[in-house]
């Protein structure tokens, strides 16, 4: 074996990691498809079903983590692009519901999505959908009984809110969430990466001089957490 200088390793690691992440994402994709196929075969209210759903939830979690990792890699290389289009938010929420509803209700959570007024947004559909899906997948662990998504126009922004009735965000997250990251909170399994990704992507949505923003607070259902995406 030949020796490799530190420099060389450092340069290559990120690329190798990125292509591994791609590969892992592919595998997770197949795994998710298999889990979905099995789900339709197992009877309702069975232990097997709970297991399959738990499997789906965790696989999705990995999928989103990988998505965030790739995002990070692209931010570093300035290769992350935002491609905004006009989005019919009602239709957007229908798709969001299609993706999340069965998993959340299977855990006994009440799920609702509401578009307040006919809202037409202007944003990168896939990226924002990814952020909201990832957020909703996390409520699977934290919500007590209820999760609610809404979309409305406020002060000229299109605002998506995800509210649950869980314990809410801790003071640390509320103070500096998403601005620094990399320190894993082993109790919640949170690396802060998801939030960081959300902030970066939202800020890249800039319209007539106004950037988008993420707002975190505990104005959720009965004092639960609330995450808002403000898109200009």
């Amino acid at each position: 074996m030949t020796l490799v200088t530190d420099d060389l390793v450092a340069v290559e690691f990120a690329s190798v990691l990125a292509s591994s992440v791609h590969d892992m994402k592919n595998s997770i994709g197949h795994l998710l498809n298999s889990a979905e196929a099995i789900e339709s075969l197992v009877p309702d209210n069975s232990i097997a079903r709970d297991q399959v759903l738990a499997l789906q939830h965790e696989a999705r979690r990995i999928n989103f983590d990988l998505m965030h990792l790739l995002g990070l890699y692209k931010f570093e290389r300035s290769r992350q692009v935002v491609n905004p289009t006009v989005v019919d938010c009602e239709e957007f929420l229908i798709e969001l519901t299609a993706y999340n509803e069965s998993l959340l209700t299977s855990r006994g959570l009440k799920f609702s999505a509401e578009c307040r007024g006919a809202v037409e947004g202007f944003f990168d559909r896939d990226l924002i959908m990814g952020i909201l899906n990832s957020t909703l997948n996390n409520t699977y662990n934290f919500a007590e009984s209820e999760v609610e998504v809404s979309c409305e126009t406020l002060e000229g922004y299109t605002v998506f809110s995800v509210r649950d009735d869980g314990p809410g965000y801790g003071p640390k997250v509320l103070k500096g969430g998403g601005e620094q990251m990399g320190r894993t909170d082993y109790a919640t399994g949170s690396t802060g990466l998801g939030l960081y990704f959300a902030r970066r992507i939202t800020e890249m949505h800039c319209h007539r001089g106004r950037p988008g923003k993420v707002v975190l607070d505990n104005e959720g259902i009965r004092g639960g957490g609330r995450l808002q995406l403000w898109l200009p």
Binding site: K25, N33, M67, R79, G130
Partner: peptide, 29 residues
Amino acid sequence: TAENTMDMVMAVVEYAPDSYLVKPINKAV
């Protein structure tokens, strides 16, 4: 499409298919 790399998104957007779905594909979606 798999994870959207820039080259791919550019090419796909330019030739405007009716829609594009990012993997993993979900039946409900």
